[in-house]
């Protein structure tokens, strides 16, 4: 448990150092996420249930950890109370549009890719429709 927590912290620290050294506009945690993914791809066993116990223990509380920055953000927004309407409308309408555009594009493309994969596989085997190709 503690070891896996150290792995998470190590990736975060390595990400922060890389960010400083390369001057990237991405935060260290996101680089750390990429590093951990690379580590898992190299050394991980996908079927092992206790691959990274600290990660599985922390992830259900992701929402809780957003409460402190959330409170700080809402307190910060008091400074722009004069622009309440454009900001609220911008965020709300844009969020609806973004959800719809991304979701519909993804759903259509996923269905298209699966149809194509199934059509390609049918030539080789009749088992294509089950999707157990890999």
């Amino acid at each position: 448990m503690l070891w896996s927590f150290c792995v998470l912290l190590g990736c975060q620290i390595a990400g922060a150092i890389l960010r400083e050294m390369l001057g990237l506009p991405i935060p260290g945690t996101v680089i750390g996420l990429g590093l951990l993914l690379a580590l898992l791809c190299t050394f991980g066993q996908r079927d092992k249930p206790d691959l990274l116990p600290a990660g599985d223990a922390l992830l259900p509380y992701l929402g809780l950890f957003f409460v402190p920055p959330g409170v700080a953000a809402v307190l910060q927004l008091r400074h722009i109370s004069h622009a309440y309407l454009p900001v609220a409308a911008g965020i709300l309408v844009s969020s609806v549009l973004t959800l719809a555009v991304t979701g519909l594009t993804a759903q259509a493309l996923l269905a298209w890719q699966e149809r194509r994969a199934a059509a390609g596989a049918r030539v080789v085997t009749n088992n294509a429709a089950t999707g157990n190709l890999s």
């Binding site: 898992l40 991980g44 992830l59």
Partner: peptide, 14 residues
């Protein structure tokens, strides 16, 4: 704890 938990998002991704 937000940092390590964000890093841990690599797990469901993996």
């Amino acid at each position: 704890l937000l940092g390590p938990t964000t890093v841990a998002l690599a797990l469901p991704l993996y």
